[in-house]
Design a protein around this nucleic acid. Structure first.
Length: 624
RNA sequence: GGAGGCGUGGUGUAGCGGUUAGCAUAUCGGCCUGUCAAGCCGAAGGUCGCGGGUUCAAAUCCCGUCGUCUCCGCCA
């Protein structure tokens, strides 16, 4: 098949109507877009086509706000001058598709509408044609429909996407992707597509599988990411690869997780972590500057180690827009007579806390809510001390110093040490959790995030990026009873850590890095293992039997025998990036056709059963 | 797998044991020539998600279930 030049359409224009104008390739239905007419067009004849956004019928005079992707233009239809046009316009209703021809004119003195770019002019209609009728839409085609039940919006997604906010999000997504492509192309990256029908891999997320008709009983798996493919492309000598890649993971969903999502996936040869960071950081800065009004808190992006993140924030994706850092009270309370604390320490746990600035006066009800939050993190409870007066040392402590159910269990020396460690002042609320380190971290992270939101500590116009490095390579999986890769099993250990892999696997750190923005992990990557022997060493550390390794990863190990270059890369969560840039609280709002939390598409009504013939052909027997 | 929130005319909501199920908006009809979510007058529109239970009486209380949202587990 011959591939011809792509026809230019005004709809390809990124933002501006100007381009549509200069293509000289107007559709037959219109001479201008609905966002195009200005005073300079006055007295010209124009033809517009679009949807009725609003109709205002004054009897002898009808105003129609005609909307298309590019804007809204007011059409006026006068019964005296053009009775035929008026008769048709009076039948028009919301979301009817119209074609209107007439004369562009300045609006009468005092009736311009600065809300619209076209607000100084109107189209005086001579001819109106109804191109299509519309049923009354189930919700307003307006940004106010954000209040509408999201399920209804998803069911009528094609109407939802007519709303300015959703349209803006789709445009933003397109603009970001375009800029990414241009940025990487300038730097010698090659975009390569990789297969969606591939092989299931153990480790990692659950796979979506696709049955094979030609080989009944066998299945493809949709890739969780193009990880192995991009490594093979490095072996192939591509040197620099990227892809706007669709990834599939059959795991439970969240506001920031969809079963299929989009990554900017890239890989480079002959690099160390610093190379990847210095490639991505200017890109993120450029995207922020070009498509966001937010101020970037700090450049170069701060680099924190995983350990530091966990100690200071209880999470490896800290929101750096505000303080409220964790403090450690383990040593102060380890010998306390209050067993909640000393007992936890005796069991190998820690006592840590955060300060809620100005939170001393929080209601009992509010404290119950925070306690519940701590429980969500796994804690058994939450200890709290509202500080009524400043405390310099133990002698300052009296009956009215604390508002707290637990202060009476602690002696003045412990209390003074606690206040000092917390850095708390009069009016603050100290929150404490005592448990295993991971539980304390999880609970305090939830509390800190909540405090940041509810206490108004977050500047919404701030972008706080950071890199997180030095992740552990492995973690012990209690259920499986073996070590698992924290990132993925192709991640390289730091050079100096390899010889501890057998004896002390938990201490080995990885050449892995994440990019975090405002508490969202927006990307992560690593330097990979490019040596066959090292890769096998790691598979052994993971306790994977050789036979299984050969079956699952033999292709990769074999490729490594043919001169694999040192390489590494990163995957950026494109949906999350666009969501953060768009100010959206979930990624569904930046995906044209997303799925619900139960993985349903409400527009297509799927997943759905398939008929028995299809099953037979695939050799599948459904038992549920 | 677990926890919690929500579900009332098309939409957004009020009502939380006895109401004629209220309000706003949309819709339909009438009037209306400078509006811009036009205005005024009028009308129609409800299996209170579904099933069961408690009660003389359930939108309201209880149990189950479905849908949806958020979080925990999970997401190499």
């Amino acid at each position: 098949m011959r591939i011809g030049p792509r026809p230019e359409s005004p709809y390809n224009a990124q933002f501006h109507v100007q381009r549509s104008h200069t293509t000289g390739n107007k559709p037959m239905y219109k001479t201008h877009t609905c966002g195009e007419l200005r005073l300079s067009h006055c007295d010209q004849t124009a033809m517009l086509a679009g949807w009725v956004n609003v109709r205002r019928d004054h009897g002898g005079l009808i105003f129609l706000d005609l909307r298309d992707r590019f804007g809204i233009t007011q059409v006026v239809v006068d019964a005296d001058k053009y009775p035929d046009a008026h008769a048709i316009a009076s039948q028009a209703r919301s979301e009817f598709v119209l074609k209107v021809a007439g004369t562009v004119r300045e609006r009468p003195e005092g009736s311009a509408n600065p809300t619209f770019a076209t607000g100084e002019v109107e189209l005086a209609a001579r001819e109106v044609a109804i191109l299509n009728h519309s049923e009354t839409p189930p919700f307003y085609i307006s940004d106010e429909a954000d209040e509408t039940d999201e399920a209804l919006r998803l069911q009528y997604r094609y109407l939802d996407l007519r709303r300015p906010r959703m349209l803006r999000n789709l445009r933003l997504r397109h603009a970001i992707i375009s800029d990414i492509r241009a940025y990487l192309a300038e730097r010698d990256f090659i975009e390569v597509e990789t297969p969606h029908l591939l092989k299931s891999t153990p480790e990692g997320a659950r796979d979506f599988v696709v049955p094979s008709r030609l080989q009944q009983g066998s299945f493809y798996a949709l890739p969780q990411s193009p990880q192995q493919l991009k490594q093979l492309l490095m072996v192939a000598g591509l040197d620099r690869y990227f892809q706007i890649a669709r990834c599939f993971r059959d795991e439970d969903l969240r506001a920031d997780r969809q079963p299929e999502f989009t990554q900017l996936d890239l890989e480079m040869s002959f690099v160390e972590p610093e190379d990847i960071r210095s490639l991505m950081e200017p890109l993120l800065i450029q995207l922020a500057q070009d498509h966001q009004s937010c101020r970037i808190q700090e450049t170069p992006f701060p680099v924190l180690t995983y350990r530091e993140c966990m100690d200071r924030f209880g999470t490896d994706r800290p929101d750096l827009r505000f303080g409220v850092e964790l403090f450690d009270a383990t040593r102060i309370l380890q010998e306390s007579g209050f067993k909640v604390f000393s007992g936890a320490v005796a069991r190998g746990g820690v006592v840590k806390g955060v300060v809620h600035p100005g939170g001393a006066g929080l209601s009992r009800r509010e404290m119950d809510r925070l306690t519940e939050l701590a429980r969500q993190g796994g804690a058994r409870g939450l200890a709290w001390l509202g500080l009524e007066h400043d405390v310099a040392d133990a002698s300052d402590i009296g009956d009215g110093t604390f508002r707290s159910p637990i202060a009476r269990h602690l002696d003045p020396r412990e209390l003074a040490g606690l206040v000092a460690a917390a850095g708390a002042r009069a009016g603050d609320m100290i929150l404490l959790v005592a448990d295993a380190e991971s539980v304390v971290a999880a609970s305090l992270h939830l509390l800190r995030s909540d405090i940041g939101r509810t206490a108004g500590l977050i500047d919404p116009d701030l972008f706080a990026f950071c890199w997180v490095t030095d992740f552990p390579l492995l973690e012990m999986d209690a259920e499986a009873g073996r070590w698992m890769a924290v990132h993925h099993p192709f991640t390289s250990a730091r050079d100096q850590d390899w010889d501890r892999l057998e004896d002390d696997p938990g201490s080995v750190l990885a050449k892995a890095y994440d990019v975090v923005l405002n508490g969202w992990e927006i990307g992560g990557g690593s330097i990979r293992i490019h040596d066959q022997a090292r890769q096998q060493q790691l598979f052994r550390a993971l306790g994977l039997p050789d036979a299984e390794v050969q079956q699952e990863f033999g292709h990769l190990l074999k490729a490594f025998r043919y001169g694999a270059p040192p390489h590494g890369g990163i995957a950026m969560g494109l949906d999350r990036i666009v969501a953060l840039w768009a100010g959206a609280t979930n990624i569904r709002d930046v995906i044209a056709f997303p799925k619900t939390a139960t993985g349903s598409d409400l527009l297509f009504d799927c997943p759905a059963p398939i008929d028995s013939e299809q099953l037979l052909e695939l050799g599948i027997d459904v038992t549920v």
